[in-house]
């Protein structure tokens, strides 16, 4: 009876310890913003975090990995991921494109030892949460009209005679 109780205690302690250990490393299962990460670098350093953002600029392949910068509209953070990530990216954010939004689960580094002190996230998993697309530039009629009126004024000024004192 006592022996069975001891085994149960031991098992409970082991589960508790494992849970505590596990939560220590993955205590930020909810999405964290870039501002929160950048303003609390030491708190999140080495922890697994969930971060979501838009792919902006270039996807830069480096050997079997790649760098992609994800912006959550406040800041952009560099994500170091496996090259297979590239296949899932359809749109990269720029003036003419809204980039795809991805949710990344990965390890946050305040000063990454692999990348000489860069603040980055090493992605473990990722999933697309929003598809990007082309931004249609609508012609701005008001600007066009302003430009035409100003052109007229410019022509008038050019044909004006220089001021001379009589």
């Amino acid at each position: 009876m006592i022996k069975a109780f001891n085994v149960k205690c031991l098992m409970f302690s082991a589960i508790l310890l494992y849970t505590l250990h596990f939560t220590h490393y993955t205590s930020f299962a909810q999405q964290v913003s870039s501002t929160e990460l950048i303003n609390n670098t030491r708190l999140y350093d080495g922890k697994t975090v969930v971060y979501a953002g838009e792919v902006i600029g270039d996807v830069m392949v480096r050997g079997k990995n790649l760098w992609v910068n994800l912006s959550d509209n406040k800041n952009a953070i560099g994500i170091w991921a496996d090259i297979s990530f590239a296949k899932e990216i359809s749109y990269k954010g720029s003036y003419k494109y809204k980039g795809d939004w991805f949710e990344i689960t990965g390890i946050f580094h305040r000063a990454c030892s692999e990348h000489n002190g860069d603040l980055d996230i090493h992605a473990l998993t990722w999933r697309k949460i929003r598809q990007g697309g082309i931004v249609q530039e609508k012609p701005d009629i008001e600007k066009k009209n302003r430009a035409l009126i100003l052109l007229g004024v410019l022509c008038l000024v050019l044909i004006l005679r220089p001021y001379r004192r009589l």
């Binding site: 012609p139 701005d140 600007k143 430009a147 100003l150 004024v153 410019l154 000024v157 220089p162 001021y163």
Partner: peptide, 26 residues
């Protein structure tokens, strides 16, 4: 095209002011 218009407007404002000032202060 919209960014081009931004620069055209700015350039026109600059040229109008510049030429006007030049003729006024010859």
């Amino acid at each position: 095209f919209n960014p081009a218009l931004d620069f055209i407007i700015a350039m026109e404002i600059g040229l109008i002011s510049g030429f006007f000032l030049k003729k006024l202060c010859l």
